[in-house]
Write a protein that binds this DNA or RNA. Structure first.
Lengths: 123, 123
DNA sequence: TTTCATACTTACATTTTTGTGCGTACTTCT
DNA sequence: AGAAGTACGCACAAAAATGTAAGTATGAAA
């Protein structure tokens, strides 16, 4: 039944064949991290997200939100009104990963001066 | 003394001018996350890291380790012996961020089947 | 009436990332 | 003797990420 099998039974991000690797890349992507962070403050519209995430382009934000939605971290609610109205919010699962990401961000922000002080010049 | 100042006093990853943003990108980079994870198991040599991180090229691993070292998360110890011998390990600060990254990875691995099951098809 | 805002998409251009070999200096394994 | 392992740096090329500008349908504000 399962000769030499059991390759992808236990998720392992270190294995580049494991799908968890891609999901990890999605949440740790340049804009993915930030999108999850701002969504912790609750439901928000596209333009609001864009304003709060310094430096994102519309294209990248849209794309990022889409993959995060496909992974089930974000819920997208579109109202069929004439000037578009779309709301984004975290799913329960999205909330737990957002918390982890948040912890990481806080950790870095909190140690920033320590990091900057210890930063080595060039190679 | 400090008229309209106070722009970069409080680290904020949402601000693309804030240096914390770059540091965050370093640790959440494609290979940075994984390097921190495997280094949690203790001091390791370059080739060992390469073997454990599925899919990294020598070039990328070297580059990743360098930036993480510059940020003060990794300590590099090179022995001037004839066949090169270099060891990498986490600094105290590196250990705390590695823990956060680890928590995130575990969270994703643990919910992987839930994620895969809920994944939306195409757009 | 001209402009702005909304939430994107698409085409095109540029930038960044990543990969692929090659070279090194010397030892050990075959 | 020839091959492999070590820890990379370097040059070149291909691939992926990201940015820019323009377009959409319509209501509201100037």
């Amino acid at each position: 039944m399962s000769e030499t099998a059991s390759q992808d039974q236990i998720p392992d991000v270190l294995n580049d064949k494991c799908p968890s690797r891609q999901v990890l890349n999605h949440v740790t992507s340049r804009w993915g991290v930030l999108a999850l962070l701002v969504l912790q403050d609750g439901t928000q519209r596209f333009s609001m997200l864009r304003r709060r995430i310094g430096g994102v382009s519309e294209r990248m934000l849209a794309q990022t939100l889409r993959v995060l939605e496909e992974d089930g971290f974000i819920l997208r609610r579109a109202y069929p009104v004439v000037p578009p109205h779309v709301e984004y919010e975290l799913t329960p699962l999205g909330r737990v990963v957002a918390e982890k990401v948040h912890a990481l961000a806080l950790c870095i922000e909190g140690n920033l001066d320590h990091i900057l002080r210890a930063q080595k010049p060039r190679g």
